[in-house]
């Protein structure tokens, strides 16, 4: 399942990022990024389709990830749902 909500926090500030709307808004840039990635794969001599599949699996496995680091007054949170 694709990530739907990413929460980024620093100290007491929290930012909730809905992934789908952000991806839709950034889709023109993402298209260029994908094309650039495919060209880089060709140059490096690795399978572009395999890489796309691998990246897709990686993104789909992200939900459930939670990283919380706090040190004194500083606290960092990254959560993917």
């Amino acid at each position: 399942m694709m990530p739907q909500l990413v929460t980024v926090g620093y100290r007491r500030t929290r930012v909730w990022i809905p992934v789908l709307p952000v991806v839709l808004v950034l889709s023109p840039l993402l298209l260029f990024a994908v094309i650039g990635g495919l060209v880089a794969c060709r140059v490096a001599g690795i399978s572009p389709l395999g890489t796309l599949r691998g990246v897709g699996r990686f993104l789909c496995a992200l939900p459930g990830t939670r990283i919380e680091i706090a040190d004194g007054e500083h606290a960092l949170l990254l959560s993917v749902r």
Binding site: A44, I46, R57, F58, A61, T65, I67, A70
Partner: peptide
């Protein structure tokens, strides 16, 4: 530490580790 308590709380899906491992096979 004198400044206060530090803590780390990380939860990583095992599926993510597997996907990451598969990605390493694409390193040139």
């Amino acid at each position: 530490a004198g400044a206060g308590t530090g803590h780390v709380n990380i939860r990583v899906p095992l599926q993510l580790l597997r996907a990451g491992v598969r990605l390493t096979s694409f390193i040139p």
